[in-house]
Simulated scan of single mutants.
Amino acid sequence: MSENEFLAERFEAHRSRLRAVAHRMLGSTAEADDAVQEAWVRLSRSDAGAVENLGGWLTTVIGRVCLDMLRSRRSRAEEPLESGPVVASEAFDPEQDALLADSVGVALLVVLDTLSPAERLAFVLHDLFAVPFEEIAGILGRSPAAARQLASRARRRVRGAPVPDTDLVRQREVVDAFLAAAREGDLEGLLAVLDPDVVARSEGGVTSGAVAVAAGARRFASFSRVALPALVDGATGLVVLEDGRPERALTFTFAHDRITVIDVALSPERVSELHIDLV
């Protein structure tokens, strides 16, 4: 076995954990895979023989890569709803989903998108993956006390997250109202069904706030005219068909009879992975 093959074998032993960290940090399969690939590139270019704790070294690298990606995402202009695929509804590893539910509840992914990149990294690495604050501080370029404070602040926001509604009948009524308002370009109608802190997620970035999301929804009007009610992976959603096949899909998260998250899948690969039932 060559030295490069041996290094690749060692890296593969850590891939699932790195991918789980990247998923929680980025909320996107494509970006998580890009981050893992970048970690491999950095490892292959390093003096790997001098690395005593490869798992810790790789966690630090994936953390820095994800932090850079989150900061870059925030520095770009926010994208409208139809500008790129949203992948927050994609399936994660079952073990990691169980860990997620046990740790912070079902509202985590909603809240993570409202945290700053530094808060998100500190919370995910420490609370979900037990990375010591001393290591997190090195990634952030801050003191351990500052890293602890960032995680504490994020934790308080997560604990205060509303529990999503589960009444499918009421959810459908809210989505129907959202769809009607989008078709008419009715800003007030959209604001009436959107939570003030609603987020719309895409690979291009996260749009936050009811006014910004409503503006994006109004630009979705041309597609909303042909959107159909559907269950998308069991969740209340909408689907647009082209030649009888799903071309894009929206899923919604709710709290207190308002929409708190809108997830949009546009790429053929993502849409094909979704289980869609017209209703």
Rank of each mutant, 00 (worst) to 15 (best):
R170V: 13
G205F: 03
L238S: 11
A161S: 09
A221I: 00
G216Y: 08
R172W: 03
P164E: 04
G234I: 03
L179F: 02
G141C: 03
R142Y: 10
R172G: 05
E242V: 03
R172I: 01
D167E: 07
T166S: 14
A137I: 01
R170K: 10
A230D: 07
T207Y: 03
S116K: 07
G209W: 09
L191Y: 13
V131H: 00
E134S: 13
A181D: 10
S116A: 12
D127I: 00
F129S: 06
L228H: 10
R156Q: 14
L241Q: 08
R245N: 11
R142F: 13
A192S: 15
D165M: 04
A145W: 01
T236W: 01
A151S: 15
F129A: 11
A181Q: 09
S152Y: 07
R142P: 00
V163E: 11
T166K: 14
S208Q: 14
H126N: 15
F133L: 01
L191S: 12
A192T: 04
E242D: 10
L228V: 15
L190I: 01
L194H: 13
D165C: 09
I139Y: 01
S152G: 11
V206L: 02
G189K: 08
V232L: 10
R172T: 12
A214K: 08
R245A: 15
E242Y: 09
E135R: 10
F223W: 13
E173N: 11
R156W: 11
V226E: 08
F129Q: 08
S143W: 06
G160H: 10
L187W: 02
A177Q: 13
L191Q: 12
A214L: 09
Q171T: 02
P162K: 10
D167T: 06
L150D: 09
A177R: 14
P162V: 06
E184V: 01
E119H: 13
S224W: 00
L190V: 01
G209L: 11
G204W: 06
L179I: 02
A214E: 07
A122V: 01
A130L: 10
G216W: 10
P196Q: 13
V193I: 02
R157K: 14
L241C: 08
Q171L: 03
Q149C: 02
D233Q: 04
F123Y: 15
P117E: 03
V175Q: 04
D165Y: 06
R201G: 00
A210S: 14
L128M: 12
A181R: 07
P117N: 05
L125S: 04
A212L: 13
E203N: 15
S222T: 04
A130E: 14
E203L: 15
R120W: 04
S202L: 09
A154I: 12
P164T: 02
I136P: 03
A147F: 05
P144D: 04
A182G: 07
P132I: 00
A214F: 07
P196R: 14
D195I: 08
